[in-house]
């Protein structure tokens, strides 16, 4: 369980990035933090493992106040995959990079080997095991960053803008990974402004603007509210916009998957 209680955060340059966040995320939830560039999404994510600590209020991870523990001890529970993976690599090979955190957590070599293999196979990186992380393409680096976190299997996994610069195939893979992690009971938190990706995932959405939570609800409810989305510099997913204009054939506005919407339209044509 994650609890933000009236959390405020001010960067050293005086910018108030979080301005009174109250938020509760239960175990096993998928939550998308959405909002425009600069809304405070990344700052919020950095509070999950204590990288940043509240200036006011507090963040509780399973009842533990992040101000009272080290990032290292929180990291076992919370894994964060950052937007720019270059910032986190330093090993000579992909294999070593994934193994590093596991060794730090004190697992013995056999467990390390098994977990590293699983993680890099799962993220389609087996062919790169001996390569330097810095020779990978942007998309491969993102997959490596995720493999590192998967290997130590924390209960809470946060992904900061995971779809930026990713093609459709990589996004589909990511969607599968998120669903799989969730089916294992993990809590997944995603910051994103990629409305089409989030529409496929249909999670709970927490909408942020200027450091505050302005809405919190299920994906359909939030995406149907175009005025609210636009006030946060977001646009509705295309099929919401389409379904809103199909009342002339009796279709109600909803967050349809493409296949379902196609079937709905065709039944009306057959009649």
């Amino acid at each position: 369980m994650i609890r933000f209680e009236s959390v405020e955060y001010v960067y050293p340059n005086g910018v108030k990035a979080l301005d009174g966040i109250d938020l509760e995320i239960r175990d096993g939830e998928i939550v998308a933090i959405m909002g425009e560039n600069g809304a405070g999404k990344t700052t919020l994510i950095k509070h999950l493992n204590g990288l940043l600590k509240p200036v006011k209020g507090r963040v509780l991870i399973d009842g533990v106040d992040t101000r009272n523990v080290t990032v290292a001890s929180l990291s076992k529970k919370v894994g964060i995959v950052f937007q720019n993976p270059d910032d986190m690599f330093f090993s000579e090979s992909v294999w070593e990079e994934v193994a590093f955190a596991l060794r730090n957590f004190g697992y013995d070599e056999e467990v390390v080997r098994r977990r590293v293999e699983n993680a890099i196979n799962f993220m389609d990186l087996a062919g790169y095991a001996d390569k330097s992380p810095f020779t990978l393409s942007g998309g491969e680096k993102k997959r490596l960053a995720l493999a590192i976190v998967l290997a130590w299997s924390p209960d809470i996994i946060a992904l900061d803008e995971p779809t930026i610069g990713q093609d459709m195939l990589q996004k589909e893979k990511l969607l599968q990974v998120i669903k799989l992690l969730n089916s294992q009971g993990k809590t997944v938190i995603i910051s994103s402004h990629d409305v089409e990706f989030i529409a496929d995932l249909k999670p709970r959405i927490v909408l942020m603007k200027r450091g505050r939570v302005v809405a919190d609800g299920d994906a359909e409810e939030i995406f149907l509210n175009e005025e609210l989305l636009r006030s946060c510099n977001l646009l509705p997913p295309q099929l919401i916009t389409l379904s809103k204009r199909l009342d002339f054939i009796g279709i109600k506005p909803r967050l349809y998957p493409p296949r379902e919407l196609a079937a709905e339209i065709m039944t009306r044509f057959r009649r």
Partner: peptide, 10 residues
């Protein structure tokens, strides 16, 4: 790997 518009998918 192309994300085609959703209306095209429909």
């Amino acid at each position: 790997g192309i994300s085609i518009p959703r209306v095209v998918e429909v």
